[in-house]
Simulated assay, not measured.
Amino acid sequence: MTTFAMNFDFNSAPEMEVLEQLQKQGYYLLGFKGAEGPNQLTAGVPTWFSVPFGDIFGKVAIEYTPKYKLYVTTQRDIAANTTIEMEKTSGELSLGSAQTFNPSGGFVSGGVTGVPADSLGLFNNRPAGTPPLTVGLAGLVATPQGDKYLPFCAFTLNPQGSIVMKPLDNILLVAAQRSLKSGNVQASVSAPGCTFAFSASAIKYELQVLPSTYAISNRPGAASVNPVSSGSTIGTIINSPR
Score class of each variant (00 low, 15 high):
E36I: 14
V45N: 05
F57L: 14
T47Q: 08
K59W: 03
A61C: 11
T47M: 08
T42Y: 13
E63V: 07
A35E: 02
N39G: 10
Q40E: 12
D55N: 15
W48D: 02
A61D: 12
G58N: 13
V45S: 00
V51Y: 10
Y68V: 00
N39P: 04
F53C: 01
L41A: 09
P38V: 13
I62M: 13
E63F: 04
T47V: 10
D55V: 12
P38K: 12
A61P: 02
F49E: 09
E63I: 01
V60G: 04
P52F: 12
G54C: 11
L41G: 01
L41T: 00
Y64A: 00
F49R: 01
K59F: 10
T42I: 15
E63Y: 05
Y68C: 03
Q40K: 11
E36G: 10
P38F: 13
G54N: 13
S50P: 12
I56C: 08
V45A: 01
S50A: 14
P52Q: 08
A35F: 04
T65W: 07
L41R: 03
F49H: 09
G37A: 04
Q40Y: 08
E63C: 13
Q40N: 07
T42H: 11
E63A: 13
K59T: 14
K67E: 08
G44C: 08
K59Y: 09
A61Q: 12
G37I: 00
K67F: 06
Q40D: 11
P38L: 09
S50Q: 08
V51M: 07
W48V: 02
W48R: 03
W48E: 06
K67I: 01
A35S: 12
D55E: 14
P52M: 07
F57P: 07
G44R: 04
T47R: 11
I56W: 04
G54K: 10
K59H: 07
V60I: 13
T42R: 13
P66L: 05
I62K: 03
V51S: 03
S50N: 09
A61E: 13
T65Q: 10
K59Q: 14
L41F: 05
V60W: 03
G44V: 06
V45F: 05
N39E: 14
T47K: 08
Y64F: 13
T47W: 03
Y64C: 00
G37C: 07
V51P: 09
V51A: 05
Y64N: 04
G44S: 10
T42C: 10
I62A: 08
I62H: 00
A43N: 02
T65K: 04
